[in-house]
């Protein structure tokens, strides 16, 4: 379910609209040292104007930005994140931005799963000479984020748990492995010397992302309270048979445990991995 859909049904929607004028979005901009940051500088030198909402952060390469970082920032309440990198082929570190592209793809999928509009995250290639483009991108993006309204993650427990789950999912070996391998599998070929169909791998990653997200969400929701499959299905808006299949796997991996069932509905609680005393 997406954010738009969610807010459309939100009781306080009208009320928020009234104060829209007072609210200013908080936007983080990650700019790569060699292209986008230089582009932003050029933008300033050339006196191109853009809204004040963006807080630029310089990084050496756009690949430095992990899904975990992005999700963490959204968890902290940021309304938008802009990633600026070199154009494909121009990366200072040869191929870094190819990976950025793949990772942003995953980030967007996870944002969508969590209920944060994927449009709150934008990736743009801005070269050192594209000062004007930079101002255009920032202006446009600020408009987009304004239109989406504030990120309600801190007020909305449900959204918070979903973003936390997306964050957890982004850290799974499975998603990291698939996204990390994607480029080579499509570009150079796999261990059997076959190049994978981009659509096929895209489908695999989409499914894996959705599964890992849902599994993480189950763990997130069952951390403080033991929950039944039906309860989880209702909160997550996922069919209960699918929830049960996830729980089968989570139990197999000793991540969740069945409580002594009272009556006919067992509940499950996340196993906290205790450190050693």
């Amino acid at each position: 379910m997406t954010e738009k859909h969610h807010t459309a049904h939100h009781q306080t929607h009208a009320h928020e609209k009234k104060h829209e004028g007072e609210w200013e979005p908080k936007i983080i901009g990650f700019l790569c040292n060699w292209c986008s940051y230089a582009g932003a500088d050029l933008c300033g030198v050339s006196r191109y104007q853009y809204p004040t909402n963006i807080r630029p952060v310089r990084v050496m390469c756009s690949t430095r930005i992990s899904p975990h970082l992005v999700l963490d920032i959204f968890k902290a309440g940021a309304d938008g994140i802009l990633l600026g990198g070199c154009h494909i082929g121009d990366c200072h570190y040869i191929s870094g931005n190819y990976y950025t592209e793949k990772r942003v793809n995953l980030m967007k999928k996870l944002l969508k799963e969590s209920g944060i509009a994927p449009e709150r995250l934008r990736l743009e290639w801005v070269s050192a000479s594209e000062g004007e483009k930079f101002s255009k991108v920032v202006t446009e993006f600020t408009e987009t984020v304004k239109a989406l309204g504030p990120n309600k993650v801190k007020k909305d427990e449900r959204l918070m748990s979903r973003v936390a789950a997306a964050d957890m999912a982004s850290e799974t070996f499975r998603l990291k492995a698939l996204v990390g391998k994607e480029l080579n599998l499509v570009g150079k070929g796999n261990v059997y010397d076959n190049k994978l169909d981009p659509e096929e791998i895209e489908k695999i990653i989409t499914e894996a992302t959705s599964d890992e997200f849902e599994r993480s969400l189950i763990l997130e929701l069952s951390r403080t309270k033991a929950r039944s499959v039906k309860e989880l299905g209702e909160i997550m808006e996922v069919p209960t048979d699918k929830v049960l299949r996830h729980i089968v796997l989570l139990r197999q991996n000793s991540l969740i445990a069945m409580e002594h069932p009272e009556g006919f509905t067992p509940t499950y609680k996340t196993i906290e991995i205790g450190g050693e005393q």
């Binding site: 033991a226 139990r251 000793s254 969740i256 445990a257 069945m258 409580e259 002594h260 609680k269 196993i271 906290e272 205790g274 450190g275 005393q277």
Partner: peptide, 8 residues
């Protein structure tokens, strides 16, 4: 719980 047993 029956199969986790907060064993720490």
């Amino acid at each position: 719980s029956s199969d986790a047993h907060n064993h720490q």
